[in-house]
Each structure stands twice: as structure tokens, then as C-alpha cells.
Amino acid sequence: MDAMTPTTVLTVGPLVITDTVVTSAALSLLLAGGLSLAVRMEGPREALEVVYETLEGTLRDMVTVDVTPIVPLILTQWAFIAAANLVGVLPIVASPTRDLSLTAALAVISLGAGHVYGFRAHGWRYLKSYVSPNPLMLPFNIIGELSRTVALALRLFGNVASGELIGAIVLSLAGPLLPVPLMLLGLITSVVQAYIFGVLTLVFTASAMQVAADRTHPTPEAT
């Protein structure tokens, strides 16, 4: 199934470099280079500042904790995932996010972010959230963390890969131009999935910070 498995571009010894690596590296360079070039110029920088502040305000309204340290991570995820999903509509290029390896890597970043910000907010006391409400719940808390990460990876992979697969099947059954409505639907799905990935990262990170916050400053609602 060439619609779902990445094609090998180059083999260096035991390393197999697939088109996922090439496309996502090119996208990262393009995004980082283009944006860092744009902030040097007067006009684009002001436009980007407005965009940044609007998005930061959106994130701020969503959760109760202070989102300032998390905003760059979420916005980077939004930009990268939206670009990676949308690049699939171009001919020849396939979405890198249809590869489970890439979505798993993104999900692991999201899992790590929750722990890093939880630790940064409350130090080693953060680990106590694993044994709350009592030590019996330790395995369930660990399973919860893992399954939430797996779900994050599979959701993005499933949506993008199934979109590409349906497009390929309709193309082979019905011929050209017929997949166009499906691709238009795929554009919406791409942006919505990127949005959801970022928001879920925010929610998980915020809940890690929140749990620790409740522990250090117990409120009547928290107990």
C-alpha cells in the first residue's frame, strides 16, 4: 500500500531514510527559515505579532493556569502539524503525518511536555500526582498517561492516513477529478486535527500543572 507506507529514499548502512524524514525536515526548515526571516522585516513582523497575540489569547481563555511558558510549544505544533497535513494535497508530495512514526514522535513530545512543565511548576512533588488519590491507583495513572499518548498518535495518523487512502481508492475506482470533493473535506480535517492536537497538548500540560498546584495550595473544591 503506497498510500500508507512511506517510500524509501535513501539507505545509509542500517539507516533507512524515508520520504517522511525528507518532507518533514524540509517543512521544518521552511517554517523556521521563513518565520525568522519574516520577523526581521517591519511589516510582516507586526502582522505576525497580531497573529501571535490573538492565538495566545485563545489559548489563555481555554485553561485556568498561566499559559505563557506553553504558548511557543503549542503554536509550533499547530504550525508544523497543519503544514504537514496540508502538504499532502500537493501532487507527488505525501503528508508526513500519514506515517505512524512521525505522529508517535509528536505524541511523545506532548507527553514529555506535560512532565517537564509539571516538574518545572512544582518540582519532585509533581510525582505525587501518580499516587493520588492513593498508591493503589499508581498502575492506572501510568496506563492513563500511556493510553492518552497512544490515542494522540493514532488519532492524527488515522485521520490523515484514512484521508489519503480514501483519495487513492476513489482515484483508482472512478478516475481523476472525482477525489476533489474528498480532498476539500481533507483540508478541513487537516486544520481541525492540527488544532485538536495542540489543544489536547495544552489540556494535558495544564492538567499536570493544575494537579501539582492543587497539591501545594489546597482549595476546598480540590479536596
Binding site: 490515542a151 488519532r155 488515522g158
Partner: peptide
Amino acid sequence: FVGMAMVESTAI
């Protein structure tokens, strides 16, 4: 949106 994404992951 977020809730539907969570529900949809079962189908995924």
C-alpha cells in the same frame, strides 16, 4: 471540537 476528537478516537 475537543470532546468529539476524544470520542472519535474510539472509531479511529
